[in-house]
Simulated scan of single mutants.
Amino acid sequence: VYVLYPKGKVSEIQEKQFTTLGQNITALEIDGTFDDCQALVKSAFMDKELNEHLQLTSANSINVARFLPQAFYYFYAYAQLKKLGKANDAVICVPSGNFGNITAGLFGKRMGLPVKRFIAANNRNDIFYQYLQTGVYTPRPSIATIANAMDVGDPSNFARVLDLYGGSHAAISAEISGTTYTNEQIAETMRETWKECHYLLDPHGACGFRALKEGLKPGETGVFLETAHPTKFLDTVEGIIGESVEMPAKLKAFMQGEKQSLSMTKEFADFKSYLLSL
């Protein structure tokens, strides 16, 4: 197993989760962005020589099989609403970067899940939001934000969303709306929610929660998806709420491990050469 991650663009605990596992898992620290990491993996799948040498597959949302177990979360969420008698006009809001999670939800809807509509919450990397406004998909280099798992400038699952709706901007816009938030807005939402509800959002979940607060219509019931424990972004979260936060034992255990990674450029030739040497 090879884990590619962008050098200097993940939190310390995120990095420790990749780099301390050892055994058959090797972390490759790529001198680039998430988009660069994804491009390397996609290029590997398209390379004839590599595919003759290795049997390659992916565990992230490049692999359509990822959506099947992920879609179950949406059915589970709907079941909870049903128990509460609040399943009519359900709206699900998903913090979105590479758009794998929300695509799983859209698959769920095609399988019969009676969700009224979806909201895709972006950070400053608002490529999908701009597409909804203009009908034009314009990928661009990603911008670093405090919601770093959503720092994607060319979401690979956009093509799947487009295909699900027959390439129709009108059909996509009818079922999916979008929002985009700055670091300041994300931090403000985290602070206010902690102060008012004593619920600790992580930066990604904060995008989802704010989008629901601002976008729910009368009669609708909203669900937002959290994507990570807030202490994965410990320094950011503590800096925003002005308090120390206790890290769960499972995450603490990762922090005790020793980082082991291989540095690599974002050039495909280097990645290919490494894989061929295995």
Rank of each mutant, 00 (worst) to 15 (best):
G178H: 07
F268K: 10
A211Y: 05
P230E: 08
K250V: 15
F107Y: 01
A269I: 12
T33G: 13
P218I: 13
G105F: 01
D126Y: 09
E192G: 13
P203D: 05
V10E: 09
L251T: 09
D36R: 10
G178Q: 07
P69K: 05
F107K: 00
K252R: 13
K16A: 08
A87M: 07
G222I: 15
G135M: 13
T265F: 01
I13P: 15
V223Y: 03
A159I: 13
G153Q: 10
S168Y: 01
T182Y: 05
G167N: 09
P248I: 04
F224G: 00
F99C: 08
G22P: 06
R210Q: 15
C37A: 09
A147T: 06
L113E: 02
F209E: 00
Y78C: 04
Y181E: 00
Y74L: 02
F72C: 11
V161Q: 03
S168K: 09
T19N: 09
I92H: 02
G239Q: 05
G8F: 10
K86I: 13
V115M: 02
T231L: 03
G153A: 13
R191Y: 00
D31E: 15
E52T: 12
A249F: 02
V41R: 04
F67C: 09
T145A: 00
L81K: 12
F45V: 07
V94F: 00
G239T: 05
S273G: 15
G112H: 04
G222T: 13
K42C: 05
F67W: 01
L234W: 05
E238S: 14
Q80L: 14
V223E: 02
E238T: 06
L40Y: 08
I62S: 01
R191G: 00
P248W: 04
V152A: 01
A44C: 14
H53R: 13
N157Y: 01
D36Q: 05
L21F: 14
K16W: 06
M264H: 14
F107Q: 00
L40H: 07
S168E: 11
K266C: 14
D163Q: 12
D47Y: 08
T179Q: 11
G257V: 14
P203R: 01
K9H: 14
T182P: 11
L225C: 10
T103P: 00
F271N: 08
E238K: 13
M111G: 02
F271M: 07
I119H: 08
C197L: 14
N148Y: 05
G208P: 00
N24R: 10
Q55P: 11
F254T: 04
F72I: 11
T134R: 04
I143S: 08
V136M: 07
S244D: 06
G135C: 08
K272H: 10
D163W: 08
G167D: 07
S43H: 11
M247C: 10
S277M: 06
E184A: 15
G135V: 08
K83W: 07
C207K: 03
G135L: 07
K217T: 00
A65L: 12
T19K: 06
G166C: 11
E12G: 02
F128A: 12
T227N: 11
G108S: 14
E188K: 13
N157D: 04
F67P: 01
P6A: 02
D151T: 10
P230G: 08
K250Y: 10
